[in-house]
């Protein structure tokens, strides 16, 4: 079947078998290997991507089911604030040491992004619930929670700064990790 999937803002058209999984489409057909492939049984959550803004496990979504929908992968996180700027969630994972081996990190960051898009000021409990479908085999959950908290705080500060000084360049308000 010929399908067109919008990935990170760009339409990609490919010929695929109906049984082709979204995770393979992203990794093998589009070379977007930031999406990791783990248990293949929708348990581990390392393959999480955003489908129309919400986290889904891409090992249990057919590529043909994603046709006509918007997919966002870890490759689409940076740069949305302009230039090649990291997303505040990515910066948070650097600041708070949110990764060790890094295998779960792309999915964790996308879930963090989706959470903050819906709820800019989540409680610790809400963050824990949001990532509860994803395993960190290094058991680094505390730092993952702190990373997402860092991003929430950074975004709130940036928003406040933008309100206080509406002429400030948006790129400057998100620069670096100097909170």
């Amino acid at each position: 079947m010929r399908i067109t999937v919008n990935v990170n803002g760009e339409d990609h058209t490919r010929e695929v078998e109906p049984r082709h999984l979204l995770v393979r489409f992203l990794r093998d057909d589009l070379d977007l290997t930031g999406t990791h492939w783990g248990c293949d049984t929708s348990n581990c959550g390392t393959c999480v991507v955003l489908m129309d803004g919400e986290p889904v496990k891409s090992c249990t979504v057919l590529a043909v089911m994603a046709a006509g929908h918007e997919i966002r992968t870890v490759e689409g996180l940076a740069g949305t604030a302009g230039g090649d700027q990291l997303d505040p969630v990515q910066q948070g994972f650097i600041e708070e040491h949110g990764l060790q081996c890094g295998f779960c990190t792309p999915g964790m960051m996308l879930t963090g992004r989706a959470l903050l898009d819906r709820n800019p000021d989540p409680s610790e409990q809400e963050i824990r619930e949001a990532i509860s479908g994803q395993l960190c085999r290094c058991t680094g959950y505390l730092n993952i929670v702190r990373s997402i908290q860092w991003a929430a705080k950074k975004q709130a500060e940036s928003a406040a700064a933008a309100t206080a000084a509406p002429t400030a360049a948006p790129a400057a308000t998100l620069a670096g990790g100097q909170s």
Partner: peptide, 9 residues
Amino acid sequence: IADPPVRNR
């Protein structure tokens, strides 16, 4: 029931 990404689908 399962977890948030599964409950999304």
